[in-house]
Simulated scan of single mutants.
Amino acid sequence: MVRSYYEQGTHIVLIDIGHSYRGLCEMVNGYYFCYEEKNPIQFNPFYLEEGDTLDTERKESIKTMILALWKKDDEHFTRSEYVAISDSIQLYYDYLSNNPELFPCFNSYYEFVQDHFTVKLKSENVKDKDFDIGNFLYVLRPYYGNGEFGFLLNAKKNLDLLHQRLIVFELDNISGHAVLLPIVTLIIMSVFVSKMRRLRGTRKMILIEEAWKAISKGGMAGYMRYLVKTVRKYFGETCFVSQEAEDVANNPIVKDAIINNSDCKILLDQTKYINKFDSVQQLLGLTDKEKTLILSLNKANDPSKKYKEVFISLGGTVSKVYRTEVSLEEYLCYTTEEKEKIKVQEYARKYGSIQKGIAMLAQDIRQGNIAA
């Protein structure tokens, strides 16, 4: 489905846990953001694309991010602190325009605050109780230079997120990280909202895979509610994916906000829930006819063909079972089986690209040179 949307020109922001989309992302030269020790996840919220300006929305997203870096969830900021940060951002971009040799990133912002904004505060006799600049710089130091998280906000590549049509955020390695996860989710919010509001006439889709279990709390929960209610007005769609019905039923964010606003429901084989499907039926608001269709999935497949069946309900008015069959090449691109993924990667390295690797692997399988 993601591939079909992509081929139709849709801009897709995808949040995942489990590396399911690495092959597809590499195939279409998308941006794949993943945290690894040797290649940690990196962003640059301060970078403005060519022709872009520091509009109110961009300024607010940077301000929200800086406040999240500075204050804990249970700490409140004052009006004077909010105003000071707002001033620092505006003055920082004014400073950049007068010093074009400087690269916009958190490092140069931190240095500007330390060397120039501090002087301004002193000249205006701003008290620590109104804005404690020493505490501000101390708390934000880990994100500067060689600090513990100095890599996070100083990226110099993959900067044009507005015009990139497939962006995958893989959160597996930071799903339980108290510092990185909130900041990364804020940046994801900023990326998609920017696309949603600025790409007029272009379809946008945000797809939240199993990652919603890790991020459906705190500020992200409110964001998910906002997305579901707002995205349609901007020619956009929100998609949520889960493998466990209980997860959906036990999550009030999903149950109350998402399901009630979802006109399209797609279900795969539910055989393992056959004895407790009544709760799933009630949760999703399915009719008895739809229940019968869902429980019939893959029960009488044509043995001469390799496919799976899928149930799709559109607004509760059209409900059908469809056969999903892909080519061997597509299967190798989408597969999440570890052995198959390793073989695809092995062939990609051998033949220089994932496209050539998949083509040669499919050829070897068809010729019987390698087991399917």
Rank of each mutant, 00 (worst) to 15 (best):
F106H: 03
F117V: 08
F112D: 02
K122T: 08
F131M: 04
E124R: 14
V113S: 02
F131L: 04
Y109S: 02
V126G: 05
Y109K: 03
Y109W: 14
S108N: 11
I133H: 07
K120W: 09
H116I: 11
F103N: 05
E124W: 07
L121H: 01
Q114T: 12
T118K: 12
K129C: 05
E111S: 10
D132R: 03
P104V: 01
S123M: 11
S123T: 14
K120L: 15
F117P: 08
V119R: 12
D115R: 15
P104I: 01
D130P: 00
K120R: 12
V126I: 15
Q114H: 10
F117A: 07
E111V: 09
K129A: 09
Q114E: 14
E124K: 11
D130F: 08
D128T: 09
K129S: 14
H116G: 03
P104R: 00
K120C: 04
S108R: 10
E111I: 11
F103M: 06
F117L: 13
P104K: 00
D128F: 08
V113W: 03
E111F: 03
N125Q: 12
N107K: 12
F112P: 05
D130G: 02
Q114N: 12
E111P: 00
F112E: 02
F103P: 00
F106C: 02
P104W: 01
F106V: 01
F117I: 10
D132V: 05
F103V: 06
S108Q: 08
V119K: 15
K122R: 15
N107G: 05
D128R: 07
E111T: 13
K127L: 12
K120N: 05
F117K: 06
Y109H: 02
D115V: 05
K129V: 12
N125E: 15
F106Q: 01
I133G: 04
K122H: 08
L121M: 14
N125P: 00
H116S: 09
N107A: 08
Y110S: 04
K129F: 10
N107Y: 05
S108I: 02
K129H: 10
K122A: 12
V119Q: 15
D130A: 09
C105A: 15
Q114M: 11
V126S: 04
P104A: 11
S108K: 10
V126N: 01
Y110F: 15
T118F: 09
D115I: 08
C105K: 08
K127V: 10
Y110N: 04
T118P: 00
F131K: 00
V113Y: 02
Y110I: 03
Y109V: 02
P104G: 01
